[in-house]
C-alpha cells in the first residue's frame, strides 16, 4: 500500500466524516457507507476530491466498485498507472 496516497486519501475522507466517526476510525478495510457512515451523496464528493487531488477521472463502474478505503486506493493506483 502506498502510504503517501493513503494519507492523502484519509485527508479527503476526514472532511466528509459524520461527527460520530473520528479520523482514527479509518482503516484500509473501512467500508465507506456501512462503517464510516458516509452517505452516497458525500461519497460522490469524496470521488470528486480524489479526482482533483490525484489528477484522475473516475467512471460509474469505478464508483460502483469503491466500497472500502482499500478499493479506493486500488482504483487510484490503477488510474495513475494507466495515465
Amino acid at each position: 500500500m502506498n502510504e503517501e496516497r493513503y494519507t492523502r486519501l484519509k485527508k479527503i475522507i476526514k472532511i466528509y466524516l459524520p461527527e460520530d466517526v473520528s479520523v482514527d476510525d479509518i482503516s484500509a478495510q473501512s467500508h465507506f457507507i456501512n462503517e464510516l457512515n458516509i452517505n452516497s451523496a458525500n461519497l460522490v464528493d469524496i470521488v470528486l476530491d480524489v479526482e482533483d487531488t490525484f489528477g484522475i477521472m473516475l467512471e460509474n463502474d469505478d464508483m460502483d466498485q469503491m466500497q472500502t478505503v482499500h478499493d479506493a486506493l486500488l482504483i487510484i493506483d490503477k488510474k495513475l498507472t494507466d495515465k
Binding site: S40, A41, V44, D45, V47, L48, N60, M63
Partner: peptide, 14 residues
Amino acid sequence: VVVTSQKKYFRFHK
C-alpha cells in the same frame, strides 16, 4: 417568485 439555478456539477447521479 422566480427561481434560477446554475449547475455546479452532475456526476454519479448527484
